[in-house]
Amino acid sequence: MEQTKILKKKAVQIRKMVLEMIYRAKSGHTGGSLSCVEILVSLFYGVMRIDPKDPKLPDRDRFVMSKGHSVESYYAVLADLGFFPVSDLESYCQFGSYLTGHPTTKVPGVEVNTGALGHGLAIGVGMAIASKIDSACYKVYVLMGDGELDEGSVWEAAQIAAHYGLDNLIGIVDRNRLQISGDTEQVLRLENLEQKWTAFGWHVIHVDGHDIEQLINTFKGLPVERGKPHLIIAHTIKGKGVSFIENNKDWHHKVPNDEELRMAMMELDEKLKELDADE
């Protein structure tokens, strides 16, 4: 599929942008930004109804970045789509910039200010209810971290979403199995995640969170079950794409030094070449 090929390359390019932003700013959340790249790319380039020229399009699909610390890949995608100039990314986290280190509505395309975990799903519930009230056709996508699910507020919102039968609401969990202090199952056991969400009244689907084709097909096939909110458990690798960052808890908010940036870029350029050769 032609689109998948293009988007696979896009994901690698976004990863390069992410690392450059974090390197320049000397601040950022590397691991979680890299783990959700394919999720963002699939939604923003392949699924959601949005218009970069008209960020406030009334019937646009809504996206809530509940794991706000993964702001770098979010900004990179929005910039690449043309919501704002790519060159602005250079000002990320710099003095006076509108590109703050967590998403804010000063940034075209961002729907709500996030950064404190556990807020996004409730906001998404509100948006999904509004869509129903207006008999509108837009859907609401909320991206959460797996560690984020420790927050009780997530489960309050989950229960409310099911109560209102919000089949236009899609929760996505970036299931990279790490939070700041380490393995999610050691810091605070999450499993059995599927059973929990199912018990809360959600329709649960597992996907490979780095498989763009699978992600797009899954999203496009929603809702599978009318009258139920849907939860996509996207199995991912924290730090995906750079071998020494992958699955390493220290890279949650570590910033690459000169040498690390060079090595990471080399690896990503290799990947691009590989993808080109496949064509």
């Binding site: 706000g68 280190g101 967590h102």
Partner: peptide, 9 residues
Amino acid sequence: SYGPLGSTH
């Protein structure tokens, strides 16, 4: 203290 991470922090 968290500087550029913004007002949530």
